[in-house]
């Protein structure tokens, strides 16, 4: 009986000591534009057949990095007051999938950028930002989608490493 009272008392003291704690703050959201800015070098190129993906064909994608000196391609993004400003490319002997040496870049949403436009004069290359979970560890994925004007047929995933 005495033992039960001791257990009950201990439990009572334990529960009485509990108090509701507020959840810790999750911190400021990651500024993706800050992470995108800087110097990048192309590490990997993957070709994706969008029709094969849509219909679940067995051959959907192919790593084509070794087909040409893609690894020589360098890309720099600069910010101006936290907003996208200029970019430069240094292709080396790589295929020039971004056909401009320099220009301006823009994103569709500064907080959650999904699309990125690279412009030089009147010409623009419209690309997409791939999954952004690698940005903090220094991996930027930019996607270029090609089609026949109506239908998207082919996608290139360009994996850049921060340098």
């Amino acid at each position: 009986m005495k033992r039960n009272l001791i257990i009950l008392f201990t439990l009572f003291v334990g529960f009485a000591a509990c108090k509701p704690d507020g959840l810790p703050g999750i911190g400021d959201p990651v500024n993706k534009l800050d992470l995108i800015s800087g110097n990048w070098q192309l590490d990997k190129v993957v070709q994706v057949d969008l029709n094969a993906v849509k219909y679940n064909f067995p051959y959907k994608e192919l790593d084509v990095t070794a087909v040409a000196p893609f690894n020589q391609f360098k890309l720099s993004f600069a910010l101006n007051n936290g907003a996208p400003a200029t970019f430069t490319t240094t292709p080396g002997n790589s295929p020039k999938f971004i056909p401009f040496a320099s220009g301006n870049w823009q994103v569709d949403d500064k907080k959650i950028p999904q699309k990125i436009d690279l412009s030089s004069g009147p010409d623009t290359v419209k690309m997409q930002l791939g999954p952004s979970n690698g940005l903090q560890s220094g991996t930027l994925i930019i996607q270029l989608i090609k089609g026949d004007g109506v239908k998207s047929l082919l996608r290139y995933d360009y994996y850049f490493k921060k340098i």
Binding site: Q47, D49, N51, L62, V67, A68, K146, L154
Partner: peptide, 11 residues
């Protein structure tokens, strides 16, 4: 041929 549809500048 992979991919099924290609342009002249594609792998």
């Amino acid at each position: 041929v992979f991919p099924n549809r290609i342009g002249a500048s594609d792998v």
